[in-house]
Amino acid sequence: MADAGMISEREDGVERLRLGFWRENPILVQALGMCPVLAVSNTGVNALTMSLATTFVLLSSAIVISTIRGIIPRQVRLACFVLVIATFVTLTDMAVEAFALELHQALGAFLPLIVVNCMILSRIEIMASRQPISVAALDAIGMGAGFMLGLVTLGSLRELLGRGTLFGAQVMPDRFEPWQVMQLPGGGFFTLAALVIGFTLLDRSLKRWREVPA
């Protein structure tokens, strides 16, 4: 995480996208920004909504901050960041409420909680407040996609094993006995731990596989 701040302006966008998606994956590698989202990661739909909302907030805040980065005084930069983020979160919250009330009710207070998602604040601080719009936006998209990868995998797994469905559609055989624990917070912790272990193993074997031909 430490070297993320030192990425130079020349770095190409594709690399930024890739970093966020895989090597610096906010959920699976950095353990960032999980607090407001894990509690509603019990179904694929909830996870998808939360990660889309988070990505939207991250992207728009990054663009706005990057645009006005010249006029933000250093002393109050965090206050400014938080103001901008909170605005977009409120907008998102109202939009979800207007267009998908039941989803809004399922997410409860966790939608407004996106405002304190540490991933957003750290990306704004590290990237958007120092980089031109294009870089900041690509970084936000990469991080958002990585966030979505982690969260939607988590949500789908929890839904599949805990309810036998995937995005609401029955997948498991009729008489499948759902593992209720997966829908409980405990199951959320276990699934995330399993994902982290799985990701580490996968990443290791990918590296090994890449090294062999070289």
């Binding site: 353990a31 624990v181 409980l184 917070p185 405990g186 199951g187 959320g188 912790f189 276990f190 995330l192 731990a193 982290v196 272990i197 580490t200 193993l201």
Partner: peptide
């Protein structure tokens, strides 16, 4: 070693979470 750090902490939290049930 794959479970060290974050993963084992999450498992720990999971077990505690079940215990708090």
């Amino acid at each position: 070693d794959v479970a060290q750090g974050m993963a084992i902490t999450l498992v720990l939290a999971g077990i505690l979470s079940l215990a708090f049930m």
